[in-house]
Design a protein around this nucleic acid. Structure first.
Lengths: 210, 210
DNA sequence: CTCCGTATAGTAGGTTCCGACTATTAGGGA
DNA sequence: TCCCTAATAGTCGGAACCTACTATACGGAG
């Protein structure tokens, strides 16, 4: 599978918005924020303008109007091309269908959890759990207030549901692991430096040799 | 909270490896792969050499030896400084303690799930579920063969456990949502273009106005 | 009526990141 | 013995990305 020409998902957001109606970049950014889509897309004005340019280069969108309101900067309004409309659907399909490796910072961090030692590790995990708990509640509240009240169809906030589910899972894992550290069931090897690298102590029997 | 000087987690991996013993960059890459850490860190030789340079600039690691074996390219071996050792622990702590927003591609994709229509969306989700299932099994196998056999302490593969848990959660959500689309309980609004933007049809009663 | 904060709209510049490439050596099959 | 592949070790140029900044308009506090 050849690599996509444009891989930044912000471009997907742009294409998505332009399916509805033509817009200028600033309006895209504020619309995304209004709709809470800024939790699934990193909306950054610098990147946004670059992304829009890239989409134009590839012929997926095109400028349809440049207006000027008073002495404010000129606004360029864009609309998708036929190519862009096709590509949008194909891209969504591919992204849904094919899981790709991501590298969340948390995975990187717990790869070296050992370095903190059991007490500090437990403390840090507890801190994370508390914060995750807060976010889960906030997000539930947002969902209740939009979808729950019937103001927005559920399908239009489905990604928020998904994110919420993911956080809940992470929270569950964090709490479970925290408990295991505290009650000692997650064995913490004492690592010792020897000539020829390292060795670690094994829980009971079973030599801990490499 | 001020932004970190270095935010690429590959730098964390480098620091982590150098806690054990000094290495040259190529060796870091192959060690990470051997230990299955390449699923939590994006190991890319281009980035690796840049990262190492950045770490040197910040005084967290330093070259300790440059050897040449025959006519192969010169190898530079690095070791952490005292500063780098401190920073490593602080960084792990911070990353564990503080959740940061990530923007996985899947979230972006399902934000526009509507664009696929119910049939194609279901098909794509089914494809994803199948692939996720395969990965879950593969990963479980790797865990069984390393930790299960007692060759590696569980703590040293804890991030693989965590990733596995996250995938299982994603798989569960995907299957559930798939079922909801197929049995019609996830209402799929027909969106219609009108003057003044868009309207969508509501499930039964309840006006679908913005 | 003026000052300040916020919303509007976008630009500039530098760092980071990555894919594609170079060059050498070791090992194994025919 | 000769070739082909894999492993070793790293370089380079360009795209992507983000931070910080510019500049105007507008509404309300004092």
């Amino acid at each position: 599978m050849a690599k996509r020409k444009i891989s930044n998902t912000l471009a997907l957001a742009v294409l998505g918005l332009l399916q509805e109606r033509s817009m200028h970049p600033y309006e895209m950014a504020s619309t995304l924020r209004e709709r809470h889509k800024d939790s699934s897309f990193k909306v950054n004005s610098g990147s946004l303008y670059d992304t829009v340019e890239a989409l134009v280069r590839h012929g997926w969108i095109e400028p349809v109007e440049t207006a000027r309101d008073g002495r404010r900067p000129e606004r360029t309004v864009y609309a998708p091309t036929a190519l862009g409309q096709d590509e949008f659907v194909r891209w969504v399909d591919e992204l849904v269908r094919t899981p790709v490796a991501e590298y969340p910072k948390f995975l990187a961090a717990i790869s070296y959890l050992g370095a903190l030692g059991p007490e500090r590790a437990a403390d840090a995990l507890a801190g994370r759990a508390a914060e995750l708990g807060r976010r889960v509640e906030e997000t539930s509240a947002v969902l209740a207030e939009t979808v729950g009240s019937g103001r927005v169809p559920r399908l239009f906030m489905i990604e928020v549901e998904c994110a919420l589910h993911a956080w809940e899972a992470e929270l569950a894992w964090t709490r479970r692991t925290l408990a295991e550290i505290r009650d000692g069931s997650l064995y913490w090897p004492r690592v010792e430096r020897t000539e020829q690298g390292w060795t670690w102590s094994a829980p009971a029997a079973a030599e801990g040799a490499k």
